[in-house]
Design a protein around this nucleic acid. Sequence first.
DNA 1: AAGATAGTGGGGTAGAGTGGGGAGTAGTGG
DNA 2: CCACTACTCCCCACTCTACCCCACTATCTT
Lengths: 140, 140
Amino acid sequence: MLLGEHDHTLDDKNRLTLPAKFREGLGDGVVVTRGMDGCLYAYAAEHWHGTAERIRALDPLSRESRMMQRHFFSGAVRADLDKQGRMVLPASLLESADIRREVTVAGVYDHLEIWDRAKWRVHLHEVEGSAEDVAERLAN
Amino acid sequence: MLLGEHDHTLDDKNRLTLPAKFREGLGDGVVVTRGMDGCLYAYAAEHWHGTAERIRALDPLSRESRMMQRHFFSGAVRADLDKQGRMVLPASLLESADIRREVTVAGVYDHLEIWDRAKWRVHLHEVEGSAEDVAERLAN
DNA sequence: AAGATAGTGGGGTAGAGTGGGGAGTAGTGG
DNA sequence: CCACTACTCCCCACTCTACCCCACTATCTT
């Protein structure tokens, strides 16, 4: 299970060191794709298939489904880690998630999320207030 | 069953000694998460899975669900105890619960709650007056 | 009163995070 | 077809953090 929040930095070569804690959970193959809400998702290669299947199963006769499929699949890249546990993030993905140098990597159960740090802060702050309301609704 | 209230202090390295009474109840694996009402929760690893499952089951195609999952899982950390029964609390969690040096650890049946001591006092005081009223409302 | 155990503090070391250099390969132009 | 360039991948080196171990004090128990 991928948990926790880590601050890292991209170097000049667009390399990102994955937090050591996450490496074993990811195996040695990672798929990075455009995520939701302006971040990138990183899946262990074996878990990627499940998510991919969910998106693939959407009906391509619906325009919105096609948009989702393009969003996910055209942005997906298989990345391998070097001996130091780093992966190169394609410039196109970095741009689409508006990621600069300062990055936050968050574990969200079955995948990682890669955020521009400033954006992450804002997003998380936005949730804080409503988390307890949502929890209240989940309670029964 | 986890019961009772203990005053402890964080050291300079953000380590918290768990009260000896609680250690056997927690096994050797603990998961710490952002809790409700401005404290931290600490679960025995095996009890954590139930809570995690409820959050995981939310549909990630809904924005609210995604935000909830991020908040919970990115705020959760697996912490192991050292030989003295201490665990390191990540700075990001301490910050989000506004915990300084003086800490109160409270047992609440299946989990521990970690509070900034001053905040705990205030909260407890708040409850004191209203416990009977709340009980009345929860009754059916 | 003495010993044991819980709580607190500090130091050393392995490993994680970051940066830079060099070789190999693909792509482009002459 | 060859040569040059640019990019990518791999390896080496340094710094700093976090983890692990040891030591001390206070309190509770016998």
